[in-house]
Amino acid sequence: MTSIACVELKDLQLNTAIGTYAPGATIPNQHLLDLILWINPSLILIASDGMEHVFDYDPLVIEINRLAQDGQYETQERLLTRIVEACARHSEVESIEASLRKTPVLENSGMLGIRLSVDADTLKEIRSNLRTSN
């Protein structure tokens, strides 16, 4: 049997500003992030307790929070792209599933969002692009 492992973050409320809205439009008051980071199972199935044996996701959560507050975004897509790039900077991450959604959409109801799956090959390409742009 093959083992798979992930770090899962659900319903992280981001303090961010996304979009421009016409007068009278419903303005979302919540932006929620779900993130699944697929990692090597050896970073979860550990023989002894200690941070040196696991993927330390705290710095990534801090970076995601910083990115969310990094000015006005026109689209959810741009913020999610930057979050995926932040994840790609961590070599432990082998693939990513991410979704970003906002609520309300219309008169205090509904949720609207985007979802992205990034496989190992795409992640490798993103990492290559990040190295050449720095």
Results as ranks from 00 to 15, higher is better:
T2V: 14
I4F: 06
I4W: 08
I4Y: 09
I4P: 00
A5K: 01
C6Y: 13
C6R: 14
L9T: 08
K10M: 04
D11K: 12
D11E: 14
L14Q: 06
N15F: 05
T16M: 07
G19H: 10
T20I: 15
T20V: 15
Y21D: 10
Y21A: 10
P23A: 15
P23S: 14
G24D: 10
T26H: 00
T26N: 01
P28M: 02
Q30T: 08
Q30W: 00
H31G: 01
H31A: 08
H31R: 07
L33E: 03
L33S: 03
D34N: 15
L35K: 00
L35P: 00
W38E: 07
W38N: 12
I39G: 02
N40K: 03
P41T: 00
S42C: 03
S42F: 01
S42A: 09
L43C: 04
A47C: 03
S48N: 13
D49R: 12
G50E: 10
G50A: 07
M51K: 14
E52D: 15
E52Q: 13
H53Y: 11
H53T: 04
V54R: 04
V54H: 02
F55S: 03
D56H: 06
Y57L: 01
Y57M: 00
Y57D: 03
D58M: 06
P59A: 03
P59K: 03
L60E: 01
V61R: 01
I62S: 07
I62N: 08
I62F: 02
E63N: 08
I64C: 11
R66V: 05
R66L: 13
R66C: 11
L67S: 03
Q69T: 13
G71I: 13
Q72T: 14
Y73G: 10
E74F: 10
E74S: 15
T75C: 11
Q76H: 12
Q76T: 14
L79S: 09
L79R: 12
L80R: 02
T81A: 13
R82Y: 02
R82K: 12
V84K: 00
V84A: 06
E85N: 12
E85I: 05
R89A: 02
R89N: 09
E92W: 00
V93M: 01
S95K: 08
S95M: 02
E97N: 13
S99C: 04
S99Q: 05
L100K: 03
L100M: 05
R101Y: 05
R101P: 12
T103L: 11
V105D: 10
V105F: 06
E107F: 05
E107V: 12
N108D: 12
G110D: 07
G110H: 01
L112D: 06
G113D: 12
G113L: 11
L116C: 12
V118T: 04
D119N: 15
A120P: 07
A120C: 06
A120D: 07
D121H: 14
L123Q: 08
L123M: 09
I126E: 01
I126T: 09
N129W: 05
N129F: 02
R131M: 09
R131Y: 11
T132A: 11
S133W: 00
S133E: 11
